[in-house]
Amino acid sequence: MVIGERKPFDEIMKMLEGVKKIAVMGCGGCVTVCLTGGHDEVRVLSSQLRMARDKEGNPIEIIEKTLERQCDPEYVEQAEGVASEVEAVLSMACGAGVQFMAERYKDLPIYPALNTTFVGGSKKEGYYVERCQTCGECKLYFTGGICPIARCSKSLLNGPCGGSTNGKCEIDPEIDCAWQLILDRLKSLNQMDRYSSMMPINDWRTNRDGGPRKMIREDFQR
């Protein structure tokens, strides 16, 4: 899932300066799962905003709403009723959701309440870790299901480097050396032959270096 972190409260307050009526718009997708932008978080942030503005003697009216997803036009459409009533929308979706909202509601300012941080998963409840850098050229077949791009600090394709000590990375003793993990796993899978062949230089054109990406399923095009 896409992981996001809530922006500092002061930054959000600054974005809303001079605005009297807003919608705080949650997203029922990834950010609900990672506990940063779902229904509950909408209620928490709205409550905080109302209190902070009340305290300043400059109250703000807030409509709280959570869409199924903000990265899908058919759901973004459902915000229409709310959008016509407010001066701005504070979106608690990831960057993609904010932009889909902005594309649909052209005359309405859409502000982000989150910093979109990475693609990852939950190690346990409330604890999220990065696992994918969306490089567009998956190498997990060769590396025992452990991604060297996302999990090696240097994104080395033929590691480990000299900074690997006791299975940990030199940048932080808390971080596992991805290549140590890969080696251990290939050994246990009896696939060490995959380690002995050199991996060629990465083609970063499939990553962001080739410009904004798109994916099209032809059978769905009408």
């Binding site: 509950d40 905080q48 209190m51």
Partner: peptide
């Protein structure tokens, strides 16, 4: 208890 309950009380 959730943060929402507590915040609502203060609000």
């Amino acid at each position: 208890i959730t943060p929402v309950f507590l915040l609502r009380a203060f609000e």
